[in-house]
Design a protein around this nucleic acid. Sequence first.
DNA 1: GATGAATGAGACTTCATTCAT
DNA 2: TATGAATGAAGTCTCATTCAT
Lengths: 195, 195, 195, 195
Amino acid sequence: MAKRTGEKYNAIIEAAVKVIAENGYHNSQVSKIAREAGVADGTIYLYFKNKEDVLVSLFRVKMGYFTTTARQELQQLENPYEKLAKLISMHFIMLEADRNLALVLQIQLRQSDAFIRQGIATPLKDYFNIIEEVIEQGISTGVFRSDINKKLTRQIIFGAMDEVVTSWVMSQRNYKLTDQIEPVYNLLARAISTG
Amino acid sequence: MAKRTGEKYNAIIEAAVKVIAENGYHNSQVSKIAREAGVADGTIYLYFKNKEDVLVSLFRVKMGYFTTTARQELQQLENPYEKLAKLISMHFIMLEADRNLALVLQIQLRQSDAFIRQGIATPLKDYFNIIEEVIEQGISTGVFRSDINKKLTRQIIFGAMDEVVTSWVMSQRNYKLTDQIEPVYNLLARAISTG
Amino acid sequence: MAKRTGEKYNAIIEAAVKVIAENGYHNSQVSKIAREAGVADGTIYLYFKNKEDVLVSLFRVKMGYFTTTARQELQQLENPYEKLAKLISMHFIMLEADRNLALVLQIQLRQSDAFIRQGIATPLKDYFNIIEEVIEQGISTGVFRSDINKKLTRQIIFGAMDEVVTSWVMSQRNYKLTDQIEPVYNLLARAISTG
Amino acid sequence: MAKRTGEKYNAIIEAAVKVIAENGYHNSQVSKIAREAGVADGTIYLYFKNKEDVLVSLFRVKMGYFTTTARQELQQLENPYEKLAKLISMHFIMLEADRNLALVLQIQLRQSDAFIRQGIATPLKDYFNIIEEVIEQGISTGVFRSDINKKLTRQIIFGAMDEVVTSWVMSQRNYKLTDQIEPVYNLLARAISTG
DNA sequence: GATGAATGAGACTTCATTCAT
DNA sequence: TATGAATGAAGTCTCATTCAT
């Protein structure tokens, strides 16, 4: 049981994103997700251990994809400022491109179930690591302030981006999230810049 | 029905904070909150419309207290930088002082139920207004950059503080949250400072 | 939770006996038992931990009643043979008087669930003890053979009675179980008698 | 469909005995039996009508084997007492030799599903007939009491053996079942013996 | 014959809410 | 006001059975 790949596996993940985005976490019954995915209720349990596993997997898959892409893109760049800009840019572009996903990641999955948070922890930590690597490189190459703490700075950068996305998702969304890339970069870069 | 004051009203709010902090949102049944508050299950419905109302009220009461205090304290100060510093300071001090409350506000109440988020929106907006007022004053008095957007900057400040607190709450908490006041201020102030 | 007494507690036990006797263990849903007892499904869980607990309790209550009565009646007698006769007599009378109960005890509850068997073990052991006491007394007073093993003899006496009841329950029941008291006694008494 | 012979047919029967003995009736899913038998789930339905049919067939095959063997062995004997001794002996030897089978026959198959009991009825009746034939012969040749009822006596003999085996299976089995052959015979023979 | 992925009916259980006392 | 026993809707998950390959 619990096959971690396959056409239906993905269909269920995508269905979960859509259903949760539209109905909210608490109103997203397994049967609703199954119907949206075009499978029987029981089929979900062939691919996932239980309902929570669907959510955790959803997060892992989506976040994993993003982390992988982010790492690749950043490797092509040298300048820490450009990397920071790229990070913000990718973050916003990805979430603007898939509003349902944004809704789920920013709002619906901020759940408290110990199990879910635990399952989410690892992929999130991966992402945090990427941010911290950029900061570290900036400091060691002397272009970022040397008096900043790497972990705290990462919290601030992530928290800032996160809240900007959340505000956008919760709003009527009559403005473009990507328009915020430059001003957010502008503020954050200034915060950590030497000189 | 649903009288919004009284000794038991407060007892229920406090019980809810404790129970949710200890058991997590999903494992906090009405009966558990009632037991902790020392009242019968049914009594809760004399003071609150339903379970969600307890949560929303909890947020409103706690957040309202904080907003009121914050506004008072800030009024005593002139300098926007001092106000920003005070804001961060109060935010961290309050949440460090009441870990249960921090857990509930940062983690457990990040729920998705439309109704809860709606009920939370107003008191949160009040807090956002306070932050925005500080930013506005800083800009108009020329000490903050004039090219920053008030709302976006508020999002960044709040998001940064919020994430720092969340990281602390989720951690083993073997460091002091209040030790982060200065470095956070240092970064955020730099981000928005002219010159 | 799990109050072990009260009007509804008994109503549920009696309902369970009836429903299981009529529908068989596997076709006795909680909802059916609840309906028969005239309570809501959820009410069952106020009095019992779960469905298995209903079955185990049923057995304990019914068997406990029988064991208590049996012990009292036997105390009034001196002669081990009379005690054996009384035992068989009570066993058959009780089960003939309540056919539903007989059905449940003899057939339906012979389940394999570890938990159920475990819950049943103690009250059954009590009954076994009573039988063994009679045997012991018979041996020590020299009226029963001294070469018989107490435990094995108990198994044979119980097994014999048990099978006679089972056959009767499974049959069309067009003969009286109590008519078997004398012949069963006659055979068993002979088996263990000295002389 | 439902061919009743073949290598896989037997493999499934044997797998069912093992799985049920190890996991209990309620925890013996078709898929588990299939895996143990080394066939696909669907294959079971090529050899058996449904799950119940597996159980009934299991009983029929095992019991049939025993009944056939018993009849053969008994035919070689003349004396009713010797036949009774042989019967008890075979009963205990067979079940001690195959503990899994004993577990299944004595405990796990004592199910209540009408259909299963019905399917079990015939092979069991065959066995009962053998016992009754011995009793009949004993009575007609004057070595067993003439005042005993054939059917009732069979119930007592079978019930006694059955309970002795059940006690052994349920116990830690730190004694030998075959050591009980002689004492059981001794008691039962005395019960029905003339003189 | 054989497979095993898929099905979907159905069961147990939880828990927010009510209401007679 | 306060109680808490009772309610019953609703949701997750299991598993015997099917059927396209």
